[in-house]
Structure formats: C-alpha cells, structure tokens
Amino acid sequence: MAKILVVADIKNDALKDSTTELLSKAGSIGAETAVVAIGSNIEALISGLVNAGSDTQYVADDPALAIFSAGPYASCVADAAKQFEADQIWFSFSESGKAAAPRVAVQLEAACATEITDVAISGEHVEVTRPAIANKVMQRVRINAGQMVVVVRAGAFEAAEGITGTENVVTLSPPAVDVKAVVKELISDASGEIDLADADIVISVGRGVKDQTGVDLVKELAHDLKAGFGSSRAMVDGGFMAHNKQVGQTGKIVAPSLYMAIGISGAIQHLAGMNGSKVILAVNKDPEAPIFNVADYGIVGDLFEVVPILRAEIKKIRA
C-alpha cells in the first residue's frame, strides 16, 4: 500500500479545503495517509486535520514558523516524510507549496512534478498527468524514482463525502531558522476580502474597465454576489488592483462554478488561470475577442452599460 503524505494548506490560521481534497484522492487510490501541518499556534486545527481524512498527523507548531520561510518549511515536510516513510508527498497549489516542493525533492532524492491534475499507477510505475505550455497541451509523465513530490493543481481533486480519519498526532521538532535568508517583514494582503481560491463565483476586471471608476463599478457586482474579485495582469500593472488579485499563469489559478471576465481580452496567460472554471461569462465590446472562444455565455457590449443591467437583473431574481 502506497503511503502518501499530504502537506496541510493553512492560510490565515485556517485549514483550506484543498487539504481534504488531496486526502480524499489519496484515500481513493487506496493509500495510507498522513498529513503534516506547519505553523504557529495551530493546535486548534488538529481536529480538522483528522476530519479531513488523515490516519496520522505530523505537527510542527512553533512561533518561528508563524511567517512562511521556504527552508524551515521544507525541512518540516522532509522530516515528516522520513518518519512516515512516505512514497509520495503532495502539496496543494500555493506559493508555499511551489517554493518548498523542489527543495523537499532534492533533500529526499525524489522525483518532482508540479501542477499535476492526476496520479495513476501504471505497472511498476507511478504516472502523473499535468498541463504544460500555458495549458496548451497535457503531458503524461512517468516517474522513475522510488519517491515522488508533487504540487497538485487547484481544483484537480474533489473532496469525498463522509470521510473520517484517526487521530494519531506526532509532534515534530522545530527546524533551524534559515540564517542566510532572513524574513524581515510580511506586508499582509488586505484581510477580510474573499480569497479567490475559495470563492464559488469569481468576477475579474481587465483593461476594458479603464480606471478606478470602472473597477468600482464591477466591484459592486462582486459585492452583491459575495464573489471573489480578481483581475487580469493589465489592471495589476496599471496599479488598480493588488498583485494577489491577478488571475492567470503568474497569478492565481481559480476554478469556481462561475467566472465572469469583464473587459478582459482572453490572452493565453490569463486563460491558463481560469479555463478550469465550470461556467464562464464574458462581457467584451469586441465580438472577436478571444475570451469568447472559451466563454459559455458571451455578452458583446460596452461593459459600462452592461454591468449595471447585470446587477439590476441579478438583484431582481434574487429578490
């Protein structure tokens, strides 16, 4: 039986759904599972780690781990992997995971694959599936090593119903701090806003909204729908939207039930971040805009005219 260690995805002191999704998938392929949780003051998360479906919980809880630092984070994962004798180590799709996975792979002399969407056993080999070339192709990749570290792409796996785990907590000793890469400060993202990764509806603005007035117009719609509010790179570069709102290949990968692209042309790098969405609605005044090639519903029109109508119509049906 394969042993799979899942790295808990913790953000703002909460356990993200992706942890359950990864553990569900690991369970569904018949693996023995463990989870490793890294942070400071995370005792309260332990029951969540169990309920997410893990058989063993490795916990590194130390004030020095309050702010992410890739070196110590990777050491904790490698430590847990060794103790558990894991065959596979799975990270959720996050900046922390992307920074730590290659380190853990080198430390364990394991193979490494990022942005995977599936794992399968084929004969003696483990194989993974992943998109490449800005999502233009898929690759089937054979792993030629006894151990494997992967980063799972957002939205790849689903949480199973009615899963349970067993509590078996193992405390990890705190890792050495990285004296050669000292985290001096964390400039936190605005809190209280809906995390794009969690939102059931995501509404993004592009260069078509032009300026702050346009941004605010669409933001009201997002507010009405309790939707995550994202952006193309153009509006981030323009200084209208924060970096952490960028959807796309260098930003967030999102897969909500509904994605609305407002005044976004649909460049390949943007599509790579959202074309896994269940339903896509695009509003663009250019009928030839490439976004319409992926949109389930396309409204050709001026967004300054369309968005207020959209708000009013949605209010009507929700009333």
């Binding site: 953000k11 702010i67 992410f68 900046e95 922390s96 890469a181 400039i187 970096h243 952490n244």
Partner: peptide
C-alpha cells in the same frame, strides 16, 4: 509574492 502577502527577505 507569497500566500499571505509580500515577504521582504
């Protein structure tokens, strides 16, 4: 650019 914000290192 990290998960929780901008890290200065």
């Amino acid at each position: 650019l990290g998960d929780a914000g901008t890290e200065i290192i």
